[in-house]
Simulated assay, not measured.
Amino acid sequence: MKQAADPAKERYALMEKIQMVDFALVELTLYLDTHPQDTQAIQQFNQLAVESRDLKSAYEQRFGPLRQYGASFSGYPWNWGDSPWPWQL
């Protein structure tokens, strides 16, 4: 019999993936600032940007808003204040 997944473990695993992809995006941004003609780096940046967007969307659908000031939609009732906050993971 398959055991139910632990939501807390799922939350942390998904957040870790988001952090890894976003870290790579920051590094690629710095690299592209000095190598703006690197087509492969631009392709990789764009692929990771899509992956980051999709991961964040999946996180928010499962666990609630991740970003504030209109970058994330809220469920009903207002759930931005639900814990843990993204930076607490």
Rank of each mutant, 00 (worst) to 15 (best):
Y12H: 10
S52D: 01
R53T: 09
R53D: 06
D82I: 03
F73H: 12
L55I: 09
T34V: 12
I18D: 01
R62E: 09
I18Q: 00
D33A: 15
K9V: 05
Q19W: 06
K56R: 10
G70T: 07
A41H: 01
T29R: 10
I18Y: 00
G64I: 02
Y59E: 02
D54M: 10
V21N: 00
R62M: 06
Q40L: 15
P7C: 06
L28H: 01
R53W: 13
N46C: 10
P65Y: 08
V21T: 00
S57M: 09
A24I: 05
L55M: 05
G70L: 12
K2C: 06
D38G: 12
W87C: 14
P65T: 04
Q43R: 15
Q44A: 04
F45V: 01
A71W: 04
P36Y: 04
L89M: 10
R62P: 02
Y76I: 11
L14K: 03
D54L: 08
W87A: 13
K2M: 09
Y76F: 06
R67T: 11
K56S: 02
T34S: 13
A71H: 14
G81Y: 10
T29W: 02
K2Y: 13
N79W: 11
D6C: 03
E51I: 04
W80A: 12
A8E: 15
Q68I: 10
D82L: 11
Q61S: 15
R11M: 11
Q68P: 03
S57I: 10
L25G: 00
S83H: 10
I18K: 00
Q88V: 11
V50M: 03
A4R: 13
R62N: 04
R11D: 00
